[in-house]
Write a protein that binds this DNA or RNA. Structure first.
Length: 605
RNA sequence: GGACCUGUAGCUCAACUGGAUAGAGCAUCUGACUACGGAUCAGAAGGCUUGGGGUUCGAAUCCCUUCAGGUCCA
């Protein structure tokens, strides 16, 4: 909180003078002052009152009076119940803002791209993690946006970030789409069908299921139970055989697998580009799935793991409040947990990361709890640096945009819909003359994506959320486009001002010359000052939502300020330099904040 | 059956991790435009924070319990 440290020291000093008692920092609790009250920062004095055995009001008064002996820091105070509201000297706020002007703000965007100069150990962020048998869906969208935004936030706070993706490119589900394509595909390719590669493969995954259901139905008619029928259906048997061939390295199967996976990767590349996300390193499960067995072996030797009669390997986590967990099947094949153990160990030896953050849905909460426990028990002390960032599902208002299957919302369709919607709305508002120019198309892209990203990121990841495309793309309210609009308007004001001759001296202008601050100016400045702390806060909590909330507050404060003060014409400009300066810094901060969310800000719209 | 997550205005979300009268937006209603980007601004209305108990100066937040939704484990 702004000036918390300065105030803290003073409170401790004065507390000793007044009450002759030594206070520890941890005994002080500060809040930003609520806007209904006068002041900048509030000290909660209930606890202190208890220590000195006086009423909260009296304690507050005594401390407040003592602080007033330091007028360079504190100009006034008031006490309400047990709350001591302190008003900071304007000069300090102005100084702080001036420092930020020349320091941090101008570099917000540049700082983000300069992470490679940081010497520390890297933070690994694993996100996206798709399967190669179907296209990305709405769930992946939340995952990707969270992963990318958190990477940006950590980078801007000076961490070296390595974005990694692990692609699930092997297993029975992959064989299913391969088999279906072989049987029913007639050699169809992305080129011949005009389908995006991942969608083409996804189509055959669905196709497999359809044919399988038919076969199962036939077998059920012959008296098989559903389970048995599924097990013995011809297609299922063939898929199993294909998997065995794949694992044995059969050249034909491998070639087909290569070909179809490449189609999918081409498709994913397009989706990732649209979402604006990228990776520093991509892992493939086909290359990592055998890792981990030796780690299990090691665990057995150490006596951390145990073997059941059938030969399967388990860990007992009952003492930790969990259950027994399977780590290796009786036939010696690995399960997900086995390979995740292997991948984690491999990554540590590769990167010596200071943290590894997994961005994975909350249906795997249990899985990660176990994974971390197992690594801990195996004696890897870096296991404490692993973190599972869990997020909940995204729902849609019923009906809309659902595919034929009724449940899956395709990421590409969603992106298209958002961009179309942005175009439609912009046209209705009639702001652009040329709706099809390259610039306009780029703008629709930015607005549609801005709407989508902001709407998803502003919600606490833990919470199940409802994504409403119409609401998200509103140009008013707490939405991406509204923030983008405000930013563009500031730039427009600046451009206009730049054409005026009085602009000379703007760049060297300092706020010190301004004596009195209007309330709205002060509000805005306080918000601007907070930005670095908000970034830190967001990095600590790994929460883009913190950035979103702050940005919206800032935009609102700016709009109120703008409405009253932002008069920029030739006659008034000499008195408006201060306001222009504030506007300009606002634009920088908003732009910086949007970058942290992975959102682009159009220069005009 | 056991474990975990969620429940806040009609709707979508906040609430700085225990602080003041629980805040925004959308929707609804009332007001404000001849120059500035009105894609705006000002205001009203809307709440027993699922229900019940506890902890204390103080609870949406912590503990117990009830109900509802969701997920995981075999």
């Amino acid at each position: 909180m702004f000036f918390e440290n300065l105030i803290k020291d003073q409170v401790i000093v004065h507390f000793k003078q007044v009450f002759d008692l030594q206070l520890r920092e941890s005994e002080l609790s500060f809040l930003p002052t609520r806007k209904e009250f006068e002041g900048d920062i509030t000290l909660v004095v209930f606890g202190l009152a208890k220590i000195v055995r006086k009423s909260p009001e009296e304690t507050g008064q005594l401390l407040g009076d003592a602080l007033l002996t330091n007028p360079e820091l504190v100009t006034s105070y008031n006490v309400v119940k047990g709350f001591l509201n302190i008003t900071i000297n304007n000069k300090l706020i102005i100084n702080r803002l001036n420092n930020l002007f020349i320091g941090q703000f101008g570099n917000v965007s540049r700082k983000i791209s300069l992470s490679d100069t940081v010497p520390e150990l890297p933070v690994l962020i694993e996100y996206s993690s798709p399967n190669t048998n179907k296209p990305l869906h709405l769930g992946h969208v939340r995952n990707n946006l969270l992963g990318y935004s958190i990477s940006q936030i950590l980078k801007s706070n000076g961490s070296k970030v390595v974005k990694v993706n692990i692609v699930n490119d092997r297993g029975i589900h992959i064989c299913k789409s391969m088999l279906a394509w072989q049987k029913f595909g007639n050699g169809e390719t992305p080129k011949s069908s005009g389908l995006k590669g991942d969608h083409l493969v996804g189509k055959y995954y669905v196709e497999f299921d359809r044919h399988l259901r038919e076969q199962v139905k036939e077998l059920e008619a012959k008296g098989y139970s559903k389970e048995e029928a599924t097990k013995h259906a011809g297609l299922m048997v063939e898929a199993q055989q294909m998997l065995l061939k794949w694992e044995a390295g059969d050249p034909d199967v491998k070639a087909l697998w290569q070909k179809m996976n490449n189609w999918v990767y081409d498709g994913f590349a397009v989706t990732y580009k649209n979402l604006g996300v990228d990776f520093d390193k991509i892992y493939y499960e086909s290359e990592t799935y055998l890792l981990g067995k030796s780690i299990v072996e090691e665990g057995l030797n150490k006596g951390v793991l145990f073997k059941k009669e059938d030969g399967s390997v388990w860990i007992d986590l009952k003492a930790e409040g969990l259950d027994e967990k399977l780590l290796l099947r009786s036939d010696g094949t690995s399960v997900y947990m086995t390979q995740d153990l292997g991948t984690a160990v491999m990554r540590y030896s590769e990167f010596k990361f200071s943290r590894l953050i997994y961005i994975v849905g909350n249906e795997q909460d249990y899985h990660f709890k176990v994974l971390f426990q197992v690594l801990q028990k195996l004696g890897y002390e870096w296991a404490k640096n692993l973190y599972h960032l869990s997020y909940n599902m995204v729902d849609l208002p019923s009906g809309k945009m659902k595919s034929r299957e009724g449940t899956v919302v395709d990421a590409d369709e969603l992106v298209d819909e958002m961009v179309r919607e942005a175009r439609k709305l912009t046209m209705e508002l009639g702001k652009l003359d040329d709706f099809n120019s390259e610039e306009a198309i780029k703008l629709y892209q930015m607005l549609g994506m801005g709407a989508l990203k902001y709407f998803i990121l502003k919600v606490d990841p833990e919470k199940r959320m409802l994504f409403n495309p119409d609401e998200s793309i509103d140009f008013n309210g707490n939405t991406g486009p509204f923030i983008q609009y405000t930013h563009a308007r500031i730039l427009s004001v600046m451009r206009k001002a730049a054409t005026q001759s009085e602009m000379a001296g703007f760049n060297s202008f300092e706020l010190n010359s301004v004596k009195d601050l209007q309330p709205k100016e002060r509000d805005l400045m306080k918000l601007l000052i907070r930005f670095p702390e908000v970034m830190e806060d967001a990095a600590q909590k790994l929460s883009p939502a913190v950035i979103a909330a702050y940005t919206y507050d800032l935009v609102k404060a700016y709009n109120q300020f703008y409405h009253d003060y932002a008069i920029v014409d030739a006659t008034q400009i000499s008195t408006s330099l201060f306001r222009l300066k504030l506007s300009s810094e606002c634009a920088k901060v908003i732009n910086g904040a949007l970058l942290l969310l992975g959102i682009e800000s159009p220069e005009r719209m």
